[in-house]
């Protein structure tokens, strides 16, 4: 594991965070801004997992448990939020 990779990843993370803040201030439709920001966050998470947690260098099977967990959470998020779309509370 070369140390420069760590610095490169760190630079990318900082850059992407700055990018999040830049996108936040841009005169774009709300939806596009939100999607890009969350997309950037996903990218940052992936970089950390692959290079700081070294999943890029591990057997793929090691990532499987976390991926299954993410799958479960995504199912939970989509179905629970979808279930109340268009419903008024209060």
């Amino acid at each position: 594991m070369r140390v420069w990779v760590y610095f490169a990843v760190f630079a990318a993370l900082v850059l992407m965070t700055v990018l999040e803040l830049v996108v936040f201030g841009m005169p774009l439709p709300r939806l596009i801004i939100d999607m890009s920001i969350v997309g950037l966050a996903g990218g940052k998470a992936l970089l950390i997992a692959l290079f700081f947690q070294h999943l890029a260098y591990e057997p793929k099977s090691l990532s499987s448990f976390a991926l299954l967990g993410i799958g479960g959470v995504v199912a939970f998020l989509i179905l629970s939020v979808y279930s109340i779309i268009g419903i008024a509370f209060g």
Binding site: G69, I70, G72, V73, F76, L77, S80, V81, I84, I85, I87, A88, F89, G90
Partner: peptide, 15 residues
């Protein structure tokens, strides 16, 4: 994941 989903959920439910 569930704690963050709960956040997205209540935001969706709030007008």
């Amino acid at each position: 994941g569930v704690i963050l989903s709960a956040y997205v959920y209540v935001r969706t439910a709030s007008s």
